[in-house]
């Protein structure tokens, strides 16, 4: 009988521990899966190489300080992916206010980002999780 009680107590404890570990927020693996800050910096660099060759959007980047843009985008993605970075630039609506970004241009940038992630062998899972965090910025970037 006591052994049965012991079993029950053990079961309840295990269940409680199990629940607790389920409730604990997982450490954010997206930042790791993107290759930490260095990996993100490489993705952004490859994306920007794609952008300057892309006639749909290259003109939107004329006169932009590319080094500063690279730093800002890297910090932003690093922060969004749960990494130890702080993006201190302008918010997305403010930064794109006068650019009249069309759906075509927004799609072109997303395409260049995805191709850059593929080039850096980022898993489909990590690509999707990053896109999930970026998609809500659409309305701010396009000033909708």
């Amino acid at each position: 009988m006591t052994s049965f009680k012991h079993l029950m107590v053990m079961a309840v404890l295990l269940f409680a521990v199990g629940c607790q570990s389920l409730n604990q927020p997982e450490p954010d693996s997206l930042y790791e899966d993107l290759g930490q800050r260095a990996g993100i910096a490489q993705i952004i660099e490859d994306m920007l190489y794609g952008v300057v060759d892309d006639t749909r959007i290259a003109f939107q980047f004329k006169g932009v300080d590319i080094v500063e843009l690279h730093q800002g985008l890297t910090d932003h993605i690093c922060q969004l992916s749960g990494g130890p970075c702080t993006y201190s630039g302008r918010d997305m609506r403010e930064a794109h206010k006068d650019m009249n970004i069309t759906a075509t241009q927004f799609n072109a940038l997303t395409e260049n980002l995805i191709l850059a992630m593929e080039k850096n062998r980022i898993s489909t899972s990590a690509q999707n999780r990053l896109l999930a965090r970026l998609a809500p910025l659409h309305s701010e970037v396009r000033n909708l």
Binding site: T124, S125, N128, R129, L131, A135
Partner: peptide, 9 residues
């Protein structure tokens, strides 16, 4: 829905 099931869209 991005990353909605097993991180697939």
């Amino acid at each position: 829905f991005f990353a909605a099931a097993f991180d697939r869209n």
